[in-house]
């Protein structure tokens, strides 16, 4: 077992990974993307996954979302909830307007027309795109598309949110605003007794320190959990606070050591 579980034994877990292995391809071409990853995430916990490029972070989220099958081990999502996945690329439907994209999950959930309309407006306001409902994805910038994707994922109203480098394409200022927005949303859900569990993938250690309850470091190919740390910084946080910077520096050192070991 490579994991050191921080969640107390016996507590309910929102997402449980036990010995998850993922191998792509067969024979000589086989790539071991994940190697016996075990991780328990408590309900309402915000976990950031950090690791070098190609270490299997996207693979992990796709497995948790049930879009791919594991090669070994098991994944359990509490209450068989369907996690919402925000992909590394926006993955918007080019044939629909921005508003209609956000509306798709609402339609699939069977919401009535009037309710859908107000929900779409709310969600687009959350990502500061209220004025763009009638535009098409190709008319937006990369960062704006990513925000639409976030709104569309939030529309699922799921207890488990999987986010794959969601803010990678954003300028620092917009990113800060969306960090605040995400933290606010997450805090509100947890306070309301509808815990929102977040698995958040990022390359940016400062972002991880800004958002996470716990930071989990994955090793390079094959991906393994090599280190994790709770983040005991009071919320709401600021990305430029000293505590966040100190923690980010520590995580960076760990990450450097890991990348160095693999000679990248």
């Amino acid at each position: 077992m490579t994991s050191t579980t921080l969640v107390p034994e016996g507590a309910t877990t929102a997402v449980a990974l036990s010995g998850v292995t993922k191998v792509y391809g067969r024979g000589a071409d086989a790539v071991v993307a994940l190697d016996r990853v075990s991780l328990d995430v408590a309900p309402g916990e915000f976990v950031c996954l950090v690791g070098a490029s190609g270490c299997g972070k996207s693979t992990l989220l796709n497995l948790v979302a049930g879009l791919d099958a594991v090669s070994g081990g098991g994944i359990h999502v509490a209450g068989d909830a369907r996690p919402g996945l925000m992909f590394q690329e926006p993955a918007l439907f080019p044939w629909l307007t921005v508003g209609a994209n956000v509306e798709v999950p609402l339609k699939l959930r069977g919401l009535a027309g009037a309710e859908r309309k107000t929900r779409v407006a709310e969600l687009l306001d959350t990502v500061h795109l209220g004025d763009f409902a009638r535009r098409r994805p190709h008319e937006l910038s990369g960062g704006m598309r990513q925000r639409v994707a976030l709104a569309r994922t939030l529309a699922l109203d799921t207890p488990v949110l999987l986010m794959d480098e969601p803010f990678g394409a954003l300028d620092a200022m917009t990113r800060d605003i969306l960090h605040d927005e995400l933290e606010r949303l997450w805090t509100a859900r947890n306070a309301a007794g509808k815990p929102l569990t977040v698995l958040f993938v990022t390359h940016n250690v400062r972002e991880a320190a800004r958002l996470a309850d716990r930071i989990v470091l994955l090793s390079s190919r094959p991906g393994r959990v090599i280190w994790q740390t709770p983040v005991d910084v009071a919320r709401p946080r600021r990305i430029d606070s000293a505590e966040v910077a100190t923690l980010a520096a520590e995580v960076t050192d760990r990450l450097r050591a890991e990348v160095g070991r693999h000679g990248h």
Binding site: G84, L85, F87, A91, L92, F93, P105, L108, R109, L156
Partner: peptide, 10 residues
């Protein structure tokens, strides 16, 4: 990717 997105959206 769009198929996956669709499946994830339900």
């Amino acid at each position: 990717l769009l198929l996956r997105a669709g499946r994830n959206l339900g």
